[in-house]
Simulated assay, not measured.
Amino acid sequence: MSPIEHLVTSGTFSLDGGTWEVENNVWLVGDEREVMLIDPAHDAEAVAKQVGDRRVTAIVCTHAHDDHVNQAPSLADRFGAPILMHPDEAPLWNLTHPDRLPDKELEHGQVLSAGGIELRVLLTPGHSPGSVCLYVPELRTVFSGDTLFRGGPGATGRSYSDFDKIIESIRDNLLSLSADTEVRPGHGESTSIGVEASDLHEWIRRGY
């Protein structure tokens, strides 16, 4: 069994009075006994089917846009797993789940584990105030949420976002990873740090 499993789920993203159709990447990390869920969106039944009879160690939200957290409470209750999120995401989380708080706070440098695999929390604000990525050194993989995609940084044109911060976050916490590190984002196809680095370095050089 692969230590990384992947589902694509479909639904909507709503913010600032607009609603858009989206497809989200849901990631599972672990082994045949236990897994961690990263951004389990939209379709709780599909996620639960993928989990099967394994123990869920945690539900980790890379950020709190509704398309990334809409199924977190139901899955947490179903599997008896804690919801983990950075505290700076509270204003966005409260838009979707005003009556339910996350269970534990994420912080930069924290190490999480599932099935013997360690994931290091990287704080990468910009797309939202407390966005995080999860770096897995032994698998040369980073789960980038909506911070970095194939083709560039995540969107920063809506409330609680900041373009300068997302560029700073990518520069300081992602471009330092090895070029062969696979980037597994919240939407769309995977890429690598090396593929994205040249354009990102150019934006940084220009002072964006």
Rank of each mutant, 00 (worst) to 15 (best):
residue 119 L to C: 13
residue 48 A to Q: 04
residue 135 Y to Q: 05
residue 68 H to L: 06
residue 56 V to T: 10
residue 12 T to H: 14
residue 107 E to F: 15
residue 117 I to G: 01
residue 38 I to Q: 02
residue 24 N to V: 00
residue 80 G to M: 04
residue 109 G to W: 13
residue 12 T to D: 08
residue 64 A to D: 11
residue 110 Q to I: 03
residue 102 P to L: 00
residue 19 T to L: 00
residue 21 E to F: 09
residue 135 Y to R: 01
residue 30 G to K: 05
residue 23 E to S: 13
residue 129 P to W: 06
residue 15 L to K: 12
residue 78 R to A: 13
residue 109 G to N: 11
residue 18 G to V: 14
residue 45 E to D: 15
residue 65 H to V: 08
residue 68 H to V: 03
residue 54 R to Y: 13
residue 130 G to L: 10
residue 84 L to V: 07
residue 61 C to H: 02
residue 136 V to K: 03
residue 110 Q to A: 06
residue 53 D to E: 14
residue 95 L to D: 12
residue 133 C to H: 04
residue 118 E to D: 14
residue 72 A to T: 13
residue 70 N to M: 00
residue 121 V to D: 11
residue 29 V to E: 03
residue 130 G to Y: 10
residue 65 H to Y: 15
residue 14 S to W: 04
residue 97 H to Q: 01
residue 85 M to T: 03
residue 75 L to G: 04
residue 74 S to T: 11
residue 79 F to D: 10
residue 80 G to L: 01
residue 64 A to C: 06
residue 100 R to Q: 10
residue 133 C to Y: 07
residue 65 H to I: 08
residue 105 E to G: 01
residue 104 K to F: 11
residue 44 A to M: 07
residue 66 D to S: 11
residue 21 E to C: 02
residue 107 E to H: 15
residue 123 L to A: 13
residue 95 L to R: 14
residue 28 L to V: 09
residue 84 L to G: 05
residue 85 M to Q: 04
residue 24 N to L: 03
residue 14 S to Y: 04
residue 63 H to C: 10
residue 14 S to V: 08
residue 60 V to A: 07
residue 119 L to M: 15
residue 32 E to W: 13
residue 45 E to A: 14
residue 58 A to P: 04
residue 44 A to P: 14
residue 135 Y to C: 00
residue 24 N to A: 11
residue 94 N to E: 15
residue 56 V to A: 09
residue 19 T to M: 01
residue 81 A to S: 15
residue 103 D to P: 09
residue 84 L to N: 00
residue 87 P to A: 05
residue 119 L to G: 07
residue 24 N to K: 11
residue 64 A to Y: 06
residue 65 H to R: 09
residue 19 T to A: 09
residue 97 H to K: 02
residue 22 V to P: 12
residue 18 G to H: 15
residue 103 D to I: 00
residue 96 T to R: 08
residue 54 R to T: 08
residue 39 D to L: 00
residue 48 A to D: 15
residue 89 E to W: 05
residue 88 D to R: 11
residue 73 P to V: 01
residue 27 W to P: 10
residue 117 I to Y: 15
residue 55 R to Q: 14
residue 54 R to E: 09
residue 70 N to Y: 00
residue 126 G to T: 05
residue 97 H to A: 02
residue 134 L to G: 12
residue 53 D to A: 05
residue 136 V to S: 09
residue 12 T to V: 08
residue 40 P to Y: 03
residue 93 W to F: 08
residue 119 L to A: 15
residue 123 L to T: 07
residue 111 V to Y: 06
residue 108 H to Y: 02
residue 63 H to M: 03
residue 101 L to V: 08
residue 69 V to S: 02
residue 31 D to V: 05
residue 127 H to P: 04
residue 124 T to I: 07
residue 103 D to E: 07
residue 131 S to Q: 14
residue 126 G to L: 04
residue 56 V to S: 06
residue 60 V to Y: 02
residue 82 P to H: 03
residue 94 N to A: 15
residue 18 G to E: 15
residue 53 D to W: 07
